[in-house]
Design a protein around this nucleic acid. Structure first.
Lengths: 225, 225
DNA sequence: AAACGTATGTTGGAATTCAAACAAAGGAGA
DNA sequence: TCTCCTTTGTTTGAATTCCAACATACGTTT
């Protein structure tokens, strides 16, 4: 159990919680640790969506099957990572996804209701835990909204500029470094890499932006005379 | 104050909270009610992102200015609606959006920290409030994820099918009614209405779906011989 | 029933994007 | 330095989408 303290302390769900509190917490919340052999299910679609999962070791893949049964991978979660938290918190009766152990894995399950309801002992960490959970989901909310804002643009150029202006605003500076290479950026925006490269070239020649590798600068367009 | 009870009781943030509790709550959380004249700011970009806003009367528009100052409307919030909750919960230091009163409006501001931290009196509604807040944000999370899943498809037809299969799965039946007309669906998927109509026609002739108005049925494709 | 407005389906040319291939530009290691 | 490999930029024909215009269907009102 103590072997996982260093992993847990890196999990965003547990920031600000001390190791002694974690011990108390796991007991109070009735946290279940289970070992899942490689390839076996961690959570199955249709099960009650009660649990937040924390990967302690190994790797867990979250997959979704569409109406026809075609499976697609949503995320791969590594140690310290959280999964299924949005489903548990949204009040769904059943899980719309499954989770599978990519390798032999250890997973900590926490009952979401138990996190939220507090406990008779008024443990100090409850508030912190709820705060962390809410903050994480709210932050994901913002990143999803940002992505939709870019993807909603019609053309490749508009998508790209929406992304770059967003970065400039977010980082508070007209020059910034983006955390993607060209292929990853194209995937993020949902466009073709080659078409995006063309647009980057056009925008540079048009004096709208400057860029080199993952460094970008947006230039004022001198619009409106 | 009591004049707003019926509005508040329709707000998802307050489900399960009784009117007496609301009175106590507003006092305990130090809720601020303010009247904003038409056209005036409710919240300004750059201000601390501490407050969750609840529209009590009138209408509030949430707007975002990009790096160049071009303004776009994110949402219009009507009475009973919540706004800025994700920003307050995500732990942003400053608001990345502004809110403006479209009409003369009344708005209730609740300090997000105060909601989360509980209070010395251990009010019973605190847990419920946090639960509602978290649930609302988690649900929005799922709707955003769904939208991204559809929009990430390359072609209009794939976007449409992704949406329809998602609806079928979500409603648990191959036939279902969607809450959009054609134009709204096209906007949701980020495609052209006319191109989408063409694809609906093709899918019908191909025996993949059936539809009439907002009613749809997805048919098994008899794939793989 | 007729007239009207709205929503939906259809069409065709212009513009854009895709997809694949290749070229050019670094970077790492021998 | 040279080679190998990866990343990024460029090109081109094919496919797709956009856009505007018009046709049709449906519901409502008079």
């Amino acid at each position: 159990m103590e072997a996982y303290f260093d992993v847990l302390s890196q999990c965003p769900l547990f920031v600000g919680i001390t190791q002694p509190e974690m011990t108390e917490m796991l007991r109070c919340l009735d946290g279940k640790i289970s070992a899942i052999p490689k390839g076996n299910p961690v959570l199955l679609e249709g099960e009650p969506a009660r649990f937040v999962g924390v990967v302690l070791s190994g790797a867990v893949q979250v997959v979704r099957d569409d109406y026809y049964g075609n499976r697609s991978v949503l995320t791969v979660v590594s140690p310290g990572g959280l999964f299924a938290e949005a489903f548990a918190c949204a009040g769904l009766d059943t899980l719309p996804v499954s989770a599978i152990a990519l390798q032999a894995s250890t997973v900590l399950f926490l009952d979401c209701q138990r996190i939220l309801n507090g406990c008779p002992h008024a443990c100090s960490f409850h508030g912190r835990l709820v705060h962390n959970l809410l903050q994480g989901i709210a932050q994901k909310n913002l990143t999803l909204t940002r992505k939709i804002r870019c993807m909603s643009q019609k053309t490749t150029r508009e998508k790209l500029m929406a992304f770059l202006l967003d970065q400039a605003k977010q980082q508070g500076s007209p020059e910034f470094v983006i955390p993607y290479d060209r292929q990853a950026l194209a995937d993020y925006l949902g466009v073709e890499r080659s078409a995006m490269s063309v647009e980057i070239g056009k925008l540079k020649r048009a004096g709208r932006i400057d860029s080199k590798g993952s460094w970008f600068r947006v230039l004022n367009p001198d619009k409106g005379v």
